[in-house]
Write a protein that binds this DNA or RNA. Structure first.
Lengths: 193, 193
DNA sequence: ACAGTTAGAGACCAAATGGTACAATACACA
DNA sequence: TGTGTATTGTACCATTTGGTCTCTAACTGT
């Protein structure tokens, strides 16, 4: 009935995610996005309304990919002890840095940035972090040591761990020496063991 | 021998710190700064060279005020147990939120933002966070329970705690529900007790 | 083949960005 | 009281920002 799109919106969002991930929300300029997504202004605005709407879509995608992957790791039945799964998540975060990825976590950067003044972004960020937190809580339930805790204490521990995670990835983005990150992760391990 | 300044540079930096603290480095525009500092473009550039130099000065001041205050808290002889001092720092961070301060920590926002692409800023941020970390380590040494740890383990714990702190304040800036922050702090308390 | 409809490319826009130039001003010292 | 000097205020600047508009191209259903 009309001219069809020459790009896949899903692919475009994926590419936009990479751009926002490296530059941050405010740091990513329209030309940056256009470049990274490989489309022109007209197409971007026709398909995604504006920068912020695109970012919200990207955050959704981030939840569906990165966050979901984390939750999957936290539910991994191949690792019987839930506490080990939590550790896998932290170790993974550290490994990314050693592999040269210093972008940190898109969610965490958004938390430190636009979440402060934009309610919609804050809501989505809050929700995604909540998803991860709940994954941690579930994993703790699957840990002999932490299954013994009462619900309140276990919930509080989950809150602490998600905050720890945000801190770790924020420091990774700040290019803090990797030793500090490794030590922090080790210490989380010691605490959970 | 010539026309004297009509403003106190120290006061101006203090005001600039407030502006950067609320808006972040990139989010603070020149008009924002001019407004907040109460001076004109000419004066600002003559006295502080440019935005980034001003920000570096502000970071120094932040270290001398906020960070130093934190370290002082961590050395407070009025609290005999060092672990309690660490907790005082965390409790204080939470309290700020309940009192309506949702700006988080200037250092942590800088960590998530410009530290990623600016080496000079990254260096200063890293150094200031290191100062705080060392304060935590010293406090732990003054805790009966943690004095017993070997140096490596205590150091790792300090690394974990500074990262926890960054996470907490980042989430505060993101306006995450205060309950989560309170719980995280509680859990840190449980861990240290 | 055609009409209808939408995508694409990019010229264009106003506003805001960080930064500079320079004239007017106000002070300290002689 | 004047003269030199540094500050101050502001007009100005190029560039970049996010966003719009319009004209053309391309595809679909008839």
């Amino acid at each position: 009935m009309a001219r069809p799109r020459t790009f896949d919106p899903e692919v475009a969002i994926e590419k936009a995610m990479q751009v926002f991930w490296t530059h941050g929300y405010e740091g990513a300029s329209l030309p940056d996005l256009l470049d990274g997504m490989g489309l022109t202004r007209g197409s971007l605005y026709k398909a995604f309304t504006d920068k912020k709407t695109l970012f919200l879509k990207v955050l959704e995608r981030y939840e569906e990919s990165a966050v979901l992957e984390g939750v999957k790791m936290l539910n991994d039945p191949a690792i019987p002890d839930g506490a080990d799964r939590v550790m896998a998540m932290f170790t993974n975060a550290y490994q990314r840095v050693t592999e040269g990825d210093q972008r940190g976590c898109l969610l965490c950067s958004a938390a430190a940035g636009p979440s402060n003044y934009d309610d919609e972004i804050a809501t989505v960020v809050s929700k995604s972090l909540g998803t991860l937190r709940d994954g941690i809580e579930d994993a703790l339930r699957a840990s002999p040591k932490h299954a013994a805790l009462d619900d309140a204490a276990r919930g509080e521990l989950a809150d602490m761990l998600i905050s720890q995670y945000v801190g770790l990835r924020t420091m990774a983005r700040a290019r803090i020496g990797p030793d500090m990150l490794r030590n922090a992760v080790r210490s989380v391990g010691a605490m959970l063991a």
